[in-house]
Simulated scan of single mutants.
Amino acid sequence: MFDYRALEALTAVIEQGGFERAAKRLNISQSAVSQRIRQLEFRLGQPVLLRISPPRLTEIGQRLTNHLQQVQQLEQSLLTEEHPEQDVTVRLAVNADSIDTWLAPALAQCPVSQRMNFELVIEDQRIGLQRMKNGEVMACICESAQPVNGGLSQKLGVVRYLALASPDFIHNYAAGDRGHHWLQQAPCLVYSGDDQLQHQFLALLQLDAPGRFQRVPSSSGFVQMARAGLGFGMMPEIQVREFLADGSLVNVAPQHWIDVPHYWHYWQTESDYMVQLRQAVVKHAAECLL
């Protein structure tokens, strides 16, 4: 049988991005964290962690952290049966746009949401599944339909992204260009280095990657930067309807958009609480998403 304290230390190092912060999270010394992981590696005869900055799991390390997540879900299910009043922590990887639009009401509609302490991990929808692979989260919302080992996925719907900018921005940068080539030189808003929606949009127009960037790691801030005339970018239609209606944002290419599918990923060893949460999210998503 595995030493689950060692698996918890391994997961904490990945979640916290280092040994020192993992030690603080577990309320033990940094040397104790290192010792637990070394003992685990000695037993397995191979490394479970790449000691770089930030640390990364090896293949066997990913399998172990996945295993721990599933065991914890089983334990949670048993504990809540015996103590239904007990709170549970739900660590969920989601993209920022979902939080700023439809997700919060979906979480609130779960019958047992008052017993849940949500810990949301913000990741781009393209890469959020890596958190599941690392065994860091209990569920994940991302655009990939392919589940991780030991997991399943369920489609939530599609979010339509439009390329938008302010009228003044278009006036200043288009300069009479009847095509869309001006977009390659105009400032482009991106959420993070993992945000490729703007690149995909320009590729639809048969244009090269954008030449200038404004990095805005906030979903609502992204929209406000565009409204202020500081750049163009891809925004969820469900987030900007009022700004399209009042004219403060304009579609720079009305014939083009990007539909991004969203899937709920969960472990096969799903606890009763997580089943109820998934059902609430799926139901609300069906009402909000395409």
Rank of each mutant, 00 (worst) to 15 (best):
residue 261 P to H: 03
residue 180 H to D: 02
residue 21 R to L: 06
residue 234 M to Q: 11
residue 202 L to K: 06
residue 127 I to N: 12
residue 226 A to Q: 09
residue 201 F to R: 00
residue 74 L to P: 09
residue 14 I to S: 00
residue 219 S to Q: 08
residue 11 T to A: 12
residue 242 E to N: 11
residue 59 E to K: 01
residue 241 R to W: 06
residue 136 E to G: 03
residue 264 W to Q: 07
residue 10 L to N: 02
residue 98 S to K: 09
residue 34 S to W: 13
residue 226 A to P: 12
residue 8 E to H: 14
residue 231 G to E: 13
residue 290 L to Q: 14
residue 37 I to D: 05
residue 44 L to I: 07
residue 101 T to D: 05
residue 20 E to C: 04
residue 221 G to F: 01
residue 83 H to Y: 14
residue 145 A to M: 06
residue 270 E to C: 11
residue 5 R to D: 12
residue 216 V to C: 01
residue 172 N to L: 11
residue 251 N to P: 10
residue 233 G to V: 10
residue 179 G to A: 08
residue 88 V to G: 04
residue 202 L to N: 00
residue 201 F to E: 05
residue 252 V to K: 03
residue 172 N to S: 06
residue 33 V to E: 10
residue 176 G to M: 07
residue 95 N to A: 09
residue 105 P to G: 03
residue 16 Q to H: 06
residue 249 L to P: 04
residue 156 L to I: 02
residue 236 P to M: 09
residue 88 V to Y: 09
residue 52 I to G: 09
residue 61 G to N: 03
residue 226 A to D: 05
residue 6 A to R: 14
residue 160 R to Y: 06
residue 267 W to V: 10
residue 263 Y to I: 09
residue 69 Q to F: 03
residue 266 Y to M: 15
residue 146 Q to E: 13
residue 119 E to G: 07
residue 56 R to L: 01
residue 8 E to V: 10
residue 189 L to N: 04
residue 257 W to Q: 12
residue 102 W to A: 03
residue 213 F to R: 07
residue 28 I to Y: 03
residue 4 Y to W: 15
residue 127 I to Q: 12
residue 105 P to Y: 00
residue 125 Q to I: 08
residue 153 S to F: 02
residue 54 P to I: 10
residue 8 E to N: 12
residue 144 S to Y: 00
